[in-house]
């Protein structure tokens, strides 16, 4: 997933700086439904609720906003619901890269082309985590040990972002892992703390508490440059002290999980423009910045061609990994 981050940043800046489109003539006439493709408490659910509370606080629209959870089937429930609501501009679907990745590897009855892309807001980073008292201090040590015995790598769900990244590490470092899928990253974190698995690739927010509590620590971040400086997590270290994986000699320069926003298919361009604009206004608030910081995500905003481009590149990439692993559905 080598997206030129310059392109990404400049597009985002352009979007923010540029004049808001005056053509956003369409306005909602009845309550809007936010569909979170995750159960209550999941990252996507939190995002949808944060956006909802910001919209309500600043009265960004006259109509009430209701959040509905449709997280069954790893989010497929929500996307299928979006597909079935074609032409209905009052359903906004909040998801992840699952929207295009899941149809590749499972026989689910939707594809991202059934939906109208609005934006990608906020990206979750990935890090390589090991148990606090593990003997290896660097990625090099870790991979050497992994080559000697088959390590158990945990992660959330199967054939999803975590496993894709695990398989990418296998390939880049020529090692073999046993991947054990759990329901969520939080569960994988606890399994690592208990020593039942050897490593996982959780997002910062999923393992923050565990790092602070000295049960596990990050070895490297799958990011082109170090994570932004923030408050210290442990007494001595913060996110920016974690080296990138490339620095440590593991050649995976970028891997991240975007939070995506969609409308059902067959809505008018004016309707889509309204929501793009709405999300932009949300992103400009201090509450949004606070949300991003507290959940240790990276603030981005992709829409239009930039978003399409992002999806295409990511899709190509995942197709390659899935093809090598024999996951592609016939």
């Amino acid at each position: 997933m080598k997206i030129a981050s310059k392109l990404l940043l400049s597009t985002a800046a352009l979007m923010l700086a540029g004049a808001l489109p005056a053509a956003a003539a369409w306005k909602p006439q009845k309550p809007i439904e936010f569909v979170a493709t995750a159960g209550p408490g999941g990252g996507t659910d939190n995002l949808a609720r944060a956006v909802q509370s910001i919209i309500t606080k600043y009265k960004l629209t006259d109509q009430p906003v209701v959040v509905v959870n449709k997280g069954g089937g790893s989010g497929a429930e929500g996307y299928i619901y979006g597909k079935a609501s074609a032409g209905d501009p009052y359903k906004v679907i909040f998801g992840t890269s699952n929207a295009w990745q899941q149809p590749l590897v499972s026989k689910v009855a939707f594809n991202y082309t059934d939906l109208t892309p609005i934006a990608a807001m906020a990206q979750d980073e990935f890090l390589l985590w090991v148990k606090q008292d593990a003997p290896y201090k660097t990625v090099g040590d870790f991979l050497k040990a992994a080559a000697a015995s088959e390590f158990k790598m945990g992660g959330a769900q199967s054939k999803d972002t975590d496993e894709v990244l695990t398989r990418m590490i296998e390939k880049a470092a020529r090692v073999k892992f046993t991947y054990i899928p759990f329901k969520s990253g939080a569960e994988a974190a606890v399994q690592l703390a208990g020593g039942h698995i050897d490593a996982h690739v959780n997002n910062p927010s999923e393992s923050l508490g565990q790092w602070r509590g000295s049960t596990q620590r990050p070895l490297c971040a799958f990011s082109p440059k170090r994570l932004p400086q923030g408050p210290k997590v442990t007494t001595s270290e913060g996110w920016s002290d974690v080296p990138t994986c490339v620095e440590q000699g593991l050649a995976i320069s970028q891997y991240e999980q975007p939070r995506t926003v969609w409308l059902p298919g067959k809505v008018s361009p004016e309707q889509a423009a309204f929501y793009v604009d709405l999300m932009k206004q949300v992103q400009a608030t201090p509450e949004w910045k606070e949300y991003i910081e507290k959940t240790s995500q990276v603030d981005t905003f992709l829409t239009g061609a930039a978003f399409d481009d992002f999806i295409k590149k990511d899709l190509e990439h995942v197709k390659q990994v899935a093809g090598e692993q024999g996951w592609l559905v016939k």
């Binding site: 159960g39 209550p40 408490g41 999941g42 659910d45 939190n46 944060a50 939080a186 569960e187 974190a189 606890v190 703390a193 927010s205 923050l208 508490g209 565990q210 602070r212 509590g213 000295s214 049960t215 949300y291 507290k294 959940t295």
Partner: peptide, 30 residues
């Protein structure tokens, strides 16, 4: 530990994160 023991606990955990607290071993100390 940050493992929700029930569906409701999962929602509350989401709340903890948004309030800026991180469930985990250090919560009892911090």
């Amino acid at each position: 530990l940050g493992i929700p023991g029930s569906a409701t606990a999962a929602v509350m955990m989401g709340g903890l994160m948004i309030w800026g607290l991180n469930p985990g071993p250090m919560l009892f100390v911090d």
